[in-house]
Nucleic acid binder design. Sequence first.
DNA 1: GAAAGTAAAGGACATTTGTCCCAGCTGCAG
DNA 2: CTGCAGCTGGGACAAATGTCCTTTACTTTC
Lengths: 191, 191
Amino acid sequence: MIRTNTAFLDFILVNQDHYPEGSVQELSIKKGQQLIRQRSSVNAVSIVKEGIAKCFLYQEDGTDFILEFFGPGEVVGEIEMLNNEMSFAAVEAITPITVLRISRDWFNELLTNDPVFNHYVLKLLAGKVKYKATRFSFAQTHTVEQTLKKMLIDMPDLLEVISKKDLVSYLGITERSLNRTLKSLKDNGQI
Amino acid sequence: MIRTNTAFLDFILVNQDHYPEGSVQELSIKKGQQLIRQRSSVNAVSIVKEGIAKCFLYQEDGTDFILEFFGPGEVVGEIEMLNNEMSFAAVEAITPITVLRISRDWFNELLTNDPVFNHYVLKLLAGKVKYKATRFSFAQTHTVEQTLKKMLIDMPDLLEVISKKDLVSYLGITERSLNRTLKSLKDNGQI
DNA sequence: GAAAGTAAAGGACATTTGTCCCAGCTGCAG
DNA sequence: CTGCAGCTGGGACAAATGTCCTTTACTTTC
């Protein structure tokens, strides 16, 4: 559930030496800082090098809905760049993170002239589509208890890594429901 | 909610004359026939030319979950092609449809050597990501009544175009819930 | 046109999730 | 130590949705 793409990260790390000065910058971002704000213009693509960020939508009612947790190798901003649009989601560090920031121009340059880079971007987008499809399909047709149980099997240290508030936003439920479900799983010895 | 991509369809229609013999085939598919089966290998990318298809996942419990309705210009099979994987979803005609079927080899050829084609594919993938993100975020944080009301505003003839069964699968609810919600909207004069 | 069979709609109750609020804990100021 | 602010978990009830089954309407057949 925390997504990674180490193959792509390695590819960039290996190749960035040949990229022009300033085309790729390494940035450190503190926990809680936003890498991309919702409805802002995006002029760079960033790759998470270390740490975890959340990608989420503000809802009109004040709650957030988390689309994905991005770990090492995951890419943010590419969708806005491709569509030449304002960001439709926000991205915020939930641990201290470092990112590799590729300038708009160099991203487009690589996309056009480096077939390997281009293919990585295609695959990464396909991966995002598939991830969302399977995740939401499961969530939509299962109870919170079933979903949470599955998540805990996939990632036993979930509750140490992700705050309850973020978990609630990821599941699209209330804190009350999360607490209730957690208690019920504990009472049944499933956790 | 029925997605289309006429720019891409036009692009293919205009250019296909220059493509090699057999690289693009036009096929007619009857209502109810499957264009792609779930967990099957995919060896062509298809573009809907006319009609509507549904893209859905079978769930273990026997219910379907519809990810998208594809209208003219929408593309199926590209994700599997890019990842070189079995299909993770099924695609089935819900009206009679015609599609342009691009062979695996020619799709890869165009992707590599036609920058305009390549860019269309990138944008189309980005569009699928964004569509899923906003749709599921809304669905997850609103009631069925709110979601349905929004859909009916966006598409007043929804119920004539999409069967109740499909609507139920799209919303991830039961028929009983859909009927109840529809009745409640009618009783309140909202429909 | 009546009887029988089938599909769609809806009533009654169960389960899941949300809302509201209170009790108990923690930390800090005085 | 005392008392209060703020956070966390949970109780009680409300709303939303699912399950099961009955009723209604619509076909088909004779």
